[in-house]
Amino acid sequence: MSKAFSRIYIFLVFFFLYAPILLLIFFSFNSSNSNVAFNGFSLRWYEELFHDEEILRALLNTLIVASLASVISTIIGTAAAIGLSNFKKWKKKAIMNITYIPVLNPDIITGISLLLLFVAFNIPGGFITVLIAHITFDIPYVILAITPRLRHVDSHLFEAAQDLGATPVNAFFKAVFPQLIPGIVSAFLMAFTLSIDDFVVTFFVRGNAFSTLSTVIYTITKRKIPLSINALCAIMLLCVLTVLIAVNIFDKRKSREEFK
């Protein structure tokens, strides 16, 4: 009896979570420009989407910022995680607490504090400020993703490699680094997704001319809302779904291999 209740409840909650989004996607195929009355199947909004310069430019900006920010933050963050693991206890704790600040701060505080920094030094809002902001909130997540993995790294391999003649640098890249790769990959993906998805921080530091996908969606939905937004939502959902499924399969395959 309670099993049935649990199934129904789970279903209801997921229905609640997905109904609005699925409806949005449903209306993306609407032949008329209405979010309430469906007048027939059409792909016109997808076509319009691909011709919307504003959105396309924002998409390009988003991809460039996200790619750059995730690469840079992964490099700096991984180096930081490794270096920090060798710090003395109090220094490490202090820096880790600082690292938590962008994670725990509401986005709006991160956004305005960076804005104030840029204002104080007369740096105009645009690509650079957005990039800096993204790197700033990506790095902590990279550090927090990699640090626990470091504990599981077998440092004996590092010593064994040196024992067999490798220099410390060589030993690191040949013996330790491969063990970190899955952690680095997932940290990279996390940073990338965070950057793609971010709205509030970007909104505050972007200035007037630079738009990312999320800010452009915000501006567009403040005016009249064309259904190309729905089409955009459908495509974004598809992308996220693909990535999540891929990650899940990759994880399962990895744990099956480790099990062997």
Partner: peptide, 18 residues
């Protein structure tokens, strides 16, 4: 986790439509 990765503005817009 899926909805968490969809844009905040889009999610809110979807709810607004309903």
């Amino acid at each position: 986790m899926l909805p968490m990765w969809i844009n905040l503005v889009l999610r809110t817009q979807a709810l607004q439509n309903i």
